[in-house]
């Protein structure tokens, strides 16, 4: 017996193309917003360029570095203290908005919550990393989000008041990723359902 092949009709294809275009627009917009994050990556190269007259750098990096560094000068300084509730409130509202823009629908519309991979309690230690970059946002149902929260709470307890390093925070985020990976919800991607029942044998 051959595999069943699903062929979408013209209306479904048009709808899919429209959603892909909307997603692409949102992705480009987020990339534009986050372009300043290229600064840390470019900074060492720019320093070498200053020392060696720019001979080492590739032409693209030479063009990009001065622009990126000039923009970095106008960025707000990293917050040297934990975020206040008012600051968190703004970040969370923006997270919901950005996730909805990227996914095409609010996470709450499919019963999910937006999870920050690096907990906002530690955001002040992540220098200039945008807490709402799409790579830092996941959609989880409440139970899976509780698993992530409990893991971060255990991590915080284990610090015994010590300030964690950025490497420790990233390692913890990756540990949580592994815990919740089977439960991450993605727009337009159906989770695998139970194995379909086998057809009855023909008599």
């Amino acid at each position: 017996m051959g595999l069943l092949q699903y062929t979408p009709d013209a209306a479904e294809m048009a709808d899919l193309r429209r959603r892909q275009a909307a997603f692409d627009r949102a992705r480009r917009e987020e990339s534009r917003r986050n372009s300043w994050m290229a600064v840390p990556a470019l900074a060492p190269a720019a320093a070498i360029a200053a020392l060696e007259g720019g001979a080492i750098l590739a032409a693209g990096a030479v063009r990009a570095a001065p622009r990126a560094l000039a923009r970095a000068a106008s960025l707000p300084k990293a917050v040297p203290r934990p975020l206040s509730q008012a600051e968190k409130q703004i970040i969370r509202a923006e997270a919901r908005r950005r996730y909805a823009a990227a996914a095409g629908t609010p996470a709450s519309s499919w019963g999910a919550q937006v999870h920050h991979r690096i907990a906002l309690e530690f955001q002040h230690l992540m220098a200039r990393a945008d807490p709402n970059r799409l790579a830092n946002l996941l959609a989880l149902r409440q139970q899976a989000h509780s698993v992530a929260t409990n893991s971060w709470a255990a991590f915080a307890r284990g610090l015994n008041g010590r300030t964690p390093t950025q490497a420790e925070l990233v390692a913890q985020a990756m540990k949580v990723d592994k815990l919740v990976e089977p439960f991450i919800l993605r727009a337009r991607v159906a989770r695998p359902g139970p194995t379909p029942p086998r057809p009855l044998p023909k008599k």
């Binding site: 969370r92 709450s108 919550q113 509780s146 929260t149």
Partner: peptide, 16 residues
Amino acid sequence: LLHVDALPLFFDGCGN
């Protein structure tokens, strides 16, 4: 929220 004498009414969409 029972441990803090409260009854949750709404989610904030980010786990709170």
